[in-house]
């Protein structure tokens, strides 16, 4: 993963109060339906799996299909009672895995 995503996660949150997580990952999300100039199918390459957890406990997960736009954007919400490390992880069709970690302090 050469380019890091645009990620919006608060570093400090209030216990039990929902907060928004937004991420924009640079990825072509090649659908596998397109053809190149000589008529060959351009191989599908999409981020098919996205997961967000805090200290191993699931916040949100997504299975994406080619219908998700290039440079996929996801916004969802989390609620924490304890400080922890948020791990955002995703995998594409080429098997490329990427991960972002954010320490979040509950105050």
């Amino acid at each position: 993963m050469a380019v890091r995503p645009l990620l919006s996660v608060p570093r400090e949150v209030k216990a039990g109060v929902p907060f928004e997580v937004r991420i924009l990952i640079q990825h072509p999300m090649e659908t596998g339906f397109r053809r190149d100039a000589v008529g060959g199918v351009i191989a599908r390459d999409i981020i098919h799996t996205f997961e967000c957890s805090v200290d191993g406990e699931e916040v949100f997960a997504a299975r994406l299909e080619p219908a998700v736009a290039a440079n996929p954007f996801l916004a969802f919400s989390a609620r924490l009672e304890r400080s922890g490390t948020m791990v955002l992880r995703w995998v594409d069709d080429r098997g490329v895995e990427a991960e972002e970690r954010v320490a979040i302090r509950v105050v």
Partner: peptide
């Protein structure tokens, strides 16, 4: 199929936003 979202124990507001191809 477009997407399948799963909301875990630490999910906050039950809401998701994304961008899709039509």
């Amino acid at each position: 199929g477009v997407a399948h979202f799963r909301f875990g124990r630490l999910a906050g507001v039950p809401k998701v936003a994304t961008r899709v191809r039509l």
